[in-house]
Amino acid sequence: MTTTDDEFSGYSASRRLILKGVGLVALTGLGILPFGPMPALAAANDKWPEDAFKQKGQAEAIKSLYGKTAEPSDQVKLDAPEIAENGAVVPISVTTTLTDVTSISFLVADNPNALAASYQILPGTLPSVANRLKMAKTSNVTAIVEAGGKLYSATKEVKVTVGGCGG
């Protein structure tokens, strides 16, 4: 019995040492990381449209983000599944044949906050984005494309069998 105890304590002591080492590495890693990219990112983060993301309704969110309303356009192609089995992960993508695109946004009308994601399309970047969104329940999904200062939209209903916003 004593030998097993010794062996056990020896094992756990070395294990503790290893854990300590890992902890130190993790801590130093964490310590360095937040400071390096901070200044540049802090400036960029000022532009995060907090108000738009706080809006509950879709129309309010679009108004808050762009200050104007969108018109439906068949030049905006929204690709989303008819039925999403899992509302926590719904693959949605948008492409457009419009030129001079500066921004693409995704909204889920019946989510607690309609605005899901907004992408700045900078010069040289193609107006095509794919991502994965959460949906609380069956809802219309809208893609907004800002091109040449105007807003264009495409909408599609996605049926959700299991919601992704609550337990």
């Binding site: 993301f53 906050n113 899901a116 907004s118």
Partner: peptide, 13 residues
């Protein structure tokens, strides 16, 4: 910068 994403809580885990 070529692409900037502003995300809300509705982006999947």
């Amino acid at each position: 910068a070529v692409f900037v994403a502003d995300w809300g809580t509705a982006v999947s885990k």
